[in-house]
Amino acid sequence: MEWITVLNYPVYLAIFICIYGCLAIGLNIQWGYAGLFNAGVAGFFAIGAYASAILTSPWAEGRLGGFDLPFPVGLVGAMLLAGLLAWPIGKICLRFRSDYLAIVTIGVAEGIRLVARSEEWLTNSARGISAIPRPFGDLPYAKAQLVYLGITALILLVAYVLVQRQAVSPWGRMMRAIRDNESAAQAMGKDVPYRRLEAFILGSALMGLAGALYVHLARTITPDAIDPMLITFLVWIMVILGGAGNNRGVLLGAIIVWVIWSTSEIVTDQLPSEYALKAKYGRMFLIGLLLQLVLRFRPEGILPEKLRKESREERPMGEQASATQATGNIIN
């Protein structure tokens, strides 16, 4: 066997980590920076996936499109549509706080799933859309996968750098201020509802991008692919485990959770068949257990958020003034 075929599985694993990385960074903007409990990640993933599928697939009878447009158009379209739809949703839902917001967003995601299931003219309902192109998908198996990994890794890197720059800028500090003390931020003259909406739209656009990246990998999308168990909850675990508020943390979370989820099957396959069958359910248990352990022993995640939060007593007297200034900067 050629060395390149041995790499196929790790490459596939890495592509999925990049896709989940995109989702995790999107959720990190919403939860990590702005404190918005979005439990409808799967909904925005679905919007992105279907948008890109409709834009880039060849024409088919009985449903909208396909418009046979190039891959980058699909990606941009997916981000735009996810962001655009997040606007009215956010406008209505973001008036709710924490757990109420979670309930509303679950409802919205479920609504989107039902639309994808039922609206034949739009999504071809239960049968879904197939024959979606993958860039350089005509290359041999191993090469096509490597190229696609390159594309997803590049996109993830760009998303990471942009979001990271935004997070360390005054905008990032302002978001944290809104998250940690809304009234104080409002008193400083910040337009809280507007900023929360901004974070919601930005995060949702990244989730849409992840959906588009997935759809070009699988080359087919059916409503079962937007299962909240595999999208929403796995991504939440990645963010909590890795460290909400830290982009590197959530990426580490994506790596750990997906590697455990996927490779654990190889280990359980070695068991005798009567145990191997039961062990498949063990994977879900393992992920749940991991979440419990992290929440119990390290609630801030593996790589916690870095904050400039030195207490005043520890500082020499001369720095008092600048410290006060720094506190002011946080709410800039």
């Binding site: 075929t5 041995v6 196929n8 599985y9 596939y12 999925f16 699988a218 087919t220 999308i221 059916t222 079962d224 692919a225 299962d227 595999l230 996927s262 099957e265 190889i266 396959d269 068949s273 191997a276 069958l277 498949k280």
Partner: peptide, 20 residues
């Protein structure tokens, strides 16, 4: 024996493992 989970992501992941 591999699990398809009746789900596209799980099945594609399992098939990739089987094949490679």
């Amino acid at each position: 024996m591999a699990d398809d989970g009746c789900s596209p992501q799980v099945a594609a992941d399992a098939a990739t493992k089987l094949v490679n």
